[in-house]
Each structure stands twice: as structure tokens, then as C-alpha cells.
Simulated scan of single mutants.
Amino acid sequence: MTGYWEYRTRRGTFRIVPRHGRFHPFFEDEDLGAYHSAESALDDLVGGHTSFPSSGLDPSTCGLPDEISEWTFVRTG
């Protein structure tokens, strides 16, 4: 199964996308890092420990769920 996890907020859309064996958290089209698992990427997003988007938005202030099962899995391919 291929795809990515997505969560929409009033400030924009966050995604966790698998790429080249790593998991990349995104805000809109901005890549905020690379992690060994989706859960690690999510933990850092929720804790505000990823790179911040160019807008300066702190992901930890966006009310992101801290369980990957609460995000929408979007199938691709």
C-alpha cells in the first residue's frame, strides 16, 4: 500500500510522506525534515521540533493529533 498521511487545519495542510526510505513531514509544499518512521516525524511535528515552514508557523500550535491513526491516509498509485 502506497500513500501518505494528511491532516488539514485552518492554517493549512500537514502531510507525512514516505520518500526514499524516510518519512518527510510537510506543511503545504514545504519539506520540514526526514525521519526513520512516520511516528517519529509526527512526534516532532506535534512537539514543534521539526524545521518551521518559511511562514514561521510553529506546528506545535496547530492542534495536530499525536496519533497517526487520527490522520487521513491518502492512497496513491
Rank of each mutant, 00 (worst) to 15 (best):
residue 60 S to N: 03
residue 52 F to E: 15
residue 14 F to T: 06
residue 28 E to S: 10
residue 38 A to C: 07
residue 70 E to D: 14
residue 3 G to D: 02
residue 47 G to R: 03
residue 62 C to R: 07
residue 73 F to S: 00
residue 10 R to W: 06
residue 27 F to D: 08
residue 77 G to R: 12
residue 34 A to E: 10
residue 62 C to Y: 07
residue 32 L to V: 04
residue 33 G to D: 06
residue 75 R to Y: 08
residue 47 G to V: 01
residue 60 S to Q: 08
residue 71 W to P: 01
residue 75 R to P: 02
residue 71 W to L: 05
residue 3 G to K: 03
residue 17 V to Y: 08
residue 27 F to R: 12
residue 73 F to A: 00
residue 24 H to G: 01
residue 53 P to S: 07
residue 29 D to L: 09
residue 41 A to T: 09
residue 15 R to S: 04
residue 24 H to F: 08
residue 61 T to S: 14
residue 55 S to N: 11
residue 76 T to L: 00
residue 72 T to P: 01
residue 7 Y to S: 04
residue 27 F to T: 08
residue 48 G to D: 03
residue 24 H to E: 09
residue 23 F to I: 02
residue 71 W to H: 03
residue 25 P to K: 14
residue 38 A to V: 04
residue 24 H to D: 02
residue 6 E to K: 15
residue 20 H to G: 13
residue 22 R to E: 09
residue 28 E to Q: 14
residue 69 S to C: 06
residue 50 T to V: 12
residue 8 R to C: 11
residue 43 D to C: 11
residue 24 H to C: 11
residue 57 L to P: 01
residue 25 P to C: 07
residue 60 S to K: 11
residue 45 L to I: 01
residue 41 A to R: 11
residue 40 S to P: 02
residue 12 G to E: 08
residue 60 S to C: 11
residue 31 D to A: 08
residue 14 F to H: 07
residue 2 T to R: 12
residue 48 G to V: 04
residue 27 F to L: 10
